[in-house]
């Protein structure tokens, strides 16, 4: 691992325009607001948050599927955000992706060989035989074998399909693989196999991962750092262990509390201790102030006035919460919502 970032996202905004029926006018929807992230070579960054938090928008923007509307995404020497969705092939081949649902992310009309070798066919000058040899190598990397080459996706299980998708993503030896919820469509026993597979390939091949998931516990296992998103904002970021064991932002705490405990007594204690969060409209994006203040048990008056800046957290990383502010402004947390 070097200190020079492989991918550096600064003040990234992603907006979608909701077209009206007649095709003009329409509202603008902010999916990502002012996001900052850094991934170093060979490092795994876990990006967690509930659905609609904007984590997939970040993935799509990094992959060049959706244009950034503001900010920058530095990848090596280039700014991906400035290129909108028109990445040159040299950049494309260095960033690959694995998506959530292996039932829909593989083209059913193609053979495994065609799927795995397609990036090679487009981005390299390899001939058919060379591509085939590489495909066999790739299948071995994901614990499949040569005999699977001529089969079609529908002849495989979900876990096997995801292995095929991973093999295809590894084909060009990318620097970065964006994993968009790579295991959430799989059953639990298969999830671990895929996570372990990803972990092992990373060690061998020195690939960096941008791992998007909604399950913090799962992400924690293979991530070096974790970033937590809520309604388009990155609310907390830091080393994996610190975020998992000592979350600083109330939303991160809530996410961790959502993971069920194995001990029923501990689960009961936690439930009793947990303040009942005010059940307000969580979907309404706060135009000013902290996006989480509607659900936050510690919300203060100032939370509604300003977006909290990213304060450093003890143990590494940052969290955007006034609870971490050196001066609390004379307020007691939880009094105002």
């Amino acid at each position: 691992m070097t200190d020079k970032p492989l991918l550096e996202i600064t003040d990234l905004d992603v907006t979608y325009r909701d077209r009206s029926l007649l095709g003009f006018g329409g509202r603008t929807f902010h999916a990502v607001k002012g996001a900052n992230l850094v991934i170093r070579a060979g490092e795994t960054l876990g990006l967690v948050g509930e659905s609609g938090s904007g984590k997939s928008s970040i993935a799509n923007t990094v992959l060049g599927l959706v244009p950034a509307s503001g900010g920058s995404i530095r990848f090596g020497d280039v700014d991906l955000a400035a290129m909108k969705t028109r990445y040159p092939p040299a950049v494309r081949s260095r960033i690959q992706a694995v998506f959530q649902d292996p039932y829909s992310s593989l083209n059913a009309s193609m053979t495994v060989e065609a799927i795995v070798t397609e990036p090679l066919r487009v981005h390299t000058a390899m001939n058919r035989a060379e591509r085939r040899d590489r495909a066999v190598e790739l299948l071995k990397l994901v614990s499949l074998s040569e005999e699977h080459l001529t089969r079609h996706p529908h002849q495989f299980s979900g876990g096997q399909r995801q292995r095929i998708a991973i093999a295809s993503a590894l084909a060009l030896q990318p620097k970065l693989i964006v994993l968009d919820e790579p295991v959430s469509a799989l059953d639990v026993s298969t999830q671990n196999q895929i996570i372990n597979l990803l972990y092992e390939r990373r060690e061998e091949l020195g690939i960096a991962y941008l791992l998007i998931a909604h399950d913090l516990a799962l992400v924690h296992h293979i991530s070096d750092r974790i970033a937590v998103m809520y309604l388009g904002h990155i609310v907390e970021e830091g080393p994996s262990d610190r975020v998992y064991r000592a979350p600083a932002h109330p939303y991160t705490k809530a996410l961790l509390d959502a993971v069920p405990l194995l001990d029923p007594a501990a689960q009961r204690r936690r439930r009793a201790a947990r303040k009942i969060a005010p059940a307000q409209d969580a979907t309404r994006v706060a135009e000013t102030g902290c996006p989480y203040r509607n659900r936050c048990p510690s919300a203060m008056a100032r939370c509604a006035q300003h977006m909290p800046p990213a304060y450093p957290v003890e143990g590494g990383g940052t969290a955007s919460c006034f609870l971490l502010a050196p001066d609390t402004g004379g307020e007691t947390p939880g009094e105002a919502a």
Binding site: Q96, A97, S104, S105, E118, A165, A169
Partner: peptide, 28 residues
């Protein structure tokens, strides 16, 4: 479908995405 998103993310040329990936499946 995700395989279109996957094909685009892999950097396949637009025409290949539309004709090889999308149209063959849409023709079913």
């Amino acid at each position: 479908q995700d395989y279109i998103r996957a094909a685009r993310a892999q950097g396949l040329p637009f025409r290949r995405v539309i004709f090889r990936h999308a149209l063959t499946n849409a023709m079913v």
